[in-house]
């Protein structure tokens, strides 16, 4: 299939509309205790993912490389991976479904934000050709998905503790349960972030002959990872839980956003081509 901007943006806007409908159904079902409605919201994600996936596939074919560089493709693929990861995670952890009230709207916001950045066809720099780059990116996207889910549970904890989200609270585990979900997914995020960082250093070694060069993006990524390490260490060995753990996770989440979306804009970075 020969692609065009109109086709790609058409598929993406189609996916955004489906995700919006899915969000409305799901959130309505969760808040007003209509499980059938919430279930329909989840099922509605599948056609959205198909449309979204086709749009990404056509774009991939048009630009000749994966979604690594342009803001549109990075945000769009992050949203797709987030939803797929969410749907996969709810198989072993059914109680995770409620996180959909954050995850599903976050997905369509990411796609819409990407579209507002005006998709640009960017060619791949010569150093962006390695299987390690693909692994590096995939693992960061998975880490980002797990971190969003952990963030959702941290926010649930903070709000429910303040007597808000009463409708949702019925669908969620009790407060200690919510806290544990946040802890668990922070652990997943930490794990995949570590793997992404290691794959990145192997890619750097292949491309530049050095596996670590204190590039701003690398260093921010290491700081973020260390912050997650501190969070997990405090939880495990200092019995941090509840309110203060949730607030610390919010700080970690902000650092994640800075690492993934702001530091690549620094000129001096070897990641300078990414997200410009």
């Amino acid at each position: 299939m020969k692609g065009s901007f109109a086709l790609v943006t058409g598929f993406h806007w189609g996916a955004v509309i489906v995700y919006v409908v899915a969000s409305i159904l799901f959130i309505y079902g969760q808040y007003f205790d209509r499980p059938a409605m919430a279930k329909r919201g989840l099922w509605a994600l599948f056609p959205g993912l198909v449309l979204h996936g086709i749009g990404l596939g056509i774009w991939w074919r048009m630009v000749g490389h994966g979604p690594y560089i342009d803001r549109f493709e990075v945000l769009s693929s992050n949203a797709w991976v987030l939803l797929v990861a969410f749907l996969l995670f709810i198989i072993p952890y059914p109680r995770l479904k409620t996180a959909g009230v954050v995850v599903i709207p976050a997905s369509f916001i990411l796609v819409a934000l990407g579209l507002f950045f005006n998709p640009e066809m960017k060619s791949l720099p010569p150093t962006f050709r390695s299987v390690w780059l693909v692994l590096h990116i995939i693992f960061y996207k998975i880490a980002f998905s797990a971190i969003i889910i952990a963030f959702a549970f941290s926010i649930f904890f903070l709000m429910i503790r303040r007597g808000r989200l009463a409708g949702l609270a019925r669908k969620l585990p009790d407060l200690p349960g919510i806290d544990i979900y946040a802890y668990r997914f922070a652990g997943f995020g930490f794990t995949f972030w570590a793997i992404g960082m290691l794959a990145g250093s192997i890619w750097a070694h292949q491309s530049w002959g050095i596996f670590w060069n204190w590039d701003p993006v690398q260093t921010w990524s290491l700081v973020t990872w260390a912050m997650f390490g501190i969070y997990l260490h405090l939880r495990r060995f200092f019995a941090w839980q509840g309110e203060r753990a949730a607030w610390l996770f919010v700080v970690c989440f902000v650092l994640t956003l800075v690492s993934l979306f702001f530091t690549p804009l620094f000129e001096s970075s070897i990641h300078a081509e990414y997200f410009k």
């Binding site: 921010w220 700081v223 260390a226 501190i230 260490h233 060995f237």
Partner: peptide, 20 residues
Amino acid sequence: SRSTVIALLSLITAALLVAL
């Protein structure tokens, strides 16, 4: 000890932030 580990980890993180 948990205090030593958290102190060292925090110091390294703070140092990296200064470097950034």
